[in-house]
Design a protein around this nucleic acid. Sequence first.
DNA 1: CTAGTTGCAAAGCATTTGCCTGTGG
DNA 2: CCACAGGCAAATGCTTTGCAACTAG
Lengths: 127, 127
Amino acid sequence: MQRQTQQRVAIESAFVAAGRPLGPQEILDAAREQVPSLNLATVYRTLKRMIEDKAIHPVELPGESARYELQSAAEHHHHHFRCGECDAVYDLEGCVEGLHKLLPAGFLMTGHDIVLYGSCAACGTSL
Amino acid sequence: MQRQTQQRVAIESAFVAAGRPLGPQEILDAAREQVPSLNLATVYRTLKRMIEDKAIHPVELPGESARYELQSAAEHHHHHFRCGECDAVYDLEGCVEGLHKLLPAGFLMTGHDIVLYGSCAACGTSL
DNA sequence: CTAGTTGCAAAGCATTTGCCTGTGG
DNA sequence: CCACAGGCAAATGCTTTGCAACTAG
């Protein structure tokens, strides 16, 4: 069964407050403002349970460790933007056409990932 | 400068023989058939130098550790296809239009990655 | 010769797990 | 109450690094 512990509440609210994919350390930092004793191991264990419960969804970018976002944010098709300045990842709305034209003959496409890199609005403003 | 050591020769020939992206452990296993004393640390150091020398190129897919392939196989802008049946990774020619339309206001794009998933021609035929 | 290379072992990191205490229901 | 949850620390697994011995040129 699932207990409504203060740790889990803090982690869930960190996701809600952020509105973007977070990594374990980011989650720890944010949730510690509510529960200072929170341990990183607990974050990992809680993330694992939340994934099993389909409360969150992993966001994996090439060459980087996984981030996680609320399942509600993943219920529609979307992609991600990775800021090279602050390392944050943002959700992007929409998609593109013409992916099929990349396929060689005989290949079947069942899904795809698109990741854009650059600088986010916050970082661009401060430059 | 660069020395033509037997270790490096073995690693390079492993890439040539494989003709596909290889991970550090795969490289170690293959190259040890020529140089049994080869150490994994040497593989990592050699890979780093080969990348600096632009002899190889890292291939990073979401949620997986890096593989590497000869630069000659990737001298142009391209993307990847990952077969869910055999786990092989293929290069894809070309790219798509309209990535800019995904950007929120204030965001600047400097690069992108596209990964298509599905089944390759070889696997599709055998099903 | 002798500076770049290697092997080995230890150090780093990120993530996981064991174990015992704490606590939600 | 008491089984699940959490804190802490040790254990992993992968990658990197320090260092002394080795070797290509």
